[in-house]
Amino acid sequence: MTFIDYYKILGLSKNATKEDIKKAYRKLARKYHPDVNPGDAEAEKKFKEINEANEVLSNPENRAKYDTYGKDWKHAEEFEKAKQQQQQYQRASQQTGYGGYSDEDFSEFFSSMFGGGARRGRGGNVQFRGQDFNAELDLSLEDVYRSHKRTLTVNGKNIRLTIPAGVRNGQVIKIKKHGGEGISGGPRGDLNIKFSIINRTKFKRDENNLYTTVDLDLYTALLGGEVVVDTFDGKVKLKVKPETQNGTQVKLKGKGFPVYKKEGHFGDLFVTYQIKMPTKLSEKEKKLYEELAKLR
């Protein structure tokens, strides 16, 4: 447990007035409030710190105690123990998201000095939704090509969910009522799962379309022919037109990535031909190319 400098958190000196504290707290709260910084874990952490600092410094009794024992909190604890049987409480699970206040929003330092009950009530028995939990799930591109079920463990609880095909990198799926318990009997918060899609395939993805490059030998490019191309769900044979240029792109309709939540709908696959020039030419080949060059 480390000492927390509440004055520093609010950017104040030790002789700050009640008005200074109020002003500093309000300014910082407007900046870091989780409702105006959704999904920003750093802002949420900062908000909890300034909220805790305000809880201590805006209450004359708490402030006096903090000023007296603050840096030497261990003695304060002993002092308090002797004075009264202080209730200890532990921080519970790691929770993020915001659905209102709970005792878990306060540091161990705060709890050891002021106890869980020292916090002033905000709204009495007002019911609020529980905290929203945020989780991140790493999946491969292959994983999200088909809808599949997966079991996640969030805050010690197993949640089985279906991951729909076509989920995008960075997309957040909300699972209602799988977040924290409500406050004073309010409804549970939600679980927000952010998907991080790792692509180790030779395909590049842009929304529902896939892109790939296929090598083409010079003679097939010049004279035309067939080439076998890998798609995400197997191989296809493509006809190559004679005199195909390097960088030519062909579209394979419906061979791209599944469209999110539209079963049976797929994007397109774009194949770019990359013509490979022959190397290590034999003398005979060189002569033949020279003859060809003369014809142009």
Binding site: R26, A29, R30, H33, D35, V36, G99, G100, R122, G123, F128, R129, P187
Partner: peptide, 17 residues
């Protein structure tokens, strides 16, 4: 509308907006 109402109430109460 409950989610947004709670958010509005928090912004109003805690940020005095």
């Amino acid at each position: 509308a409950l989610n947004s109402i709670e958010k509005i109430i928090r912004i109003h109460r805690e940020l005095h907006v």
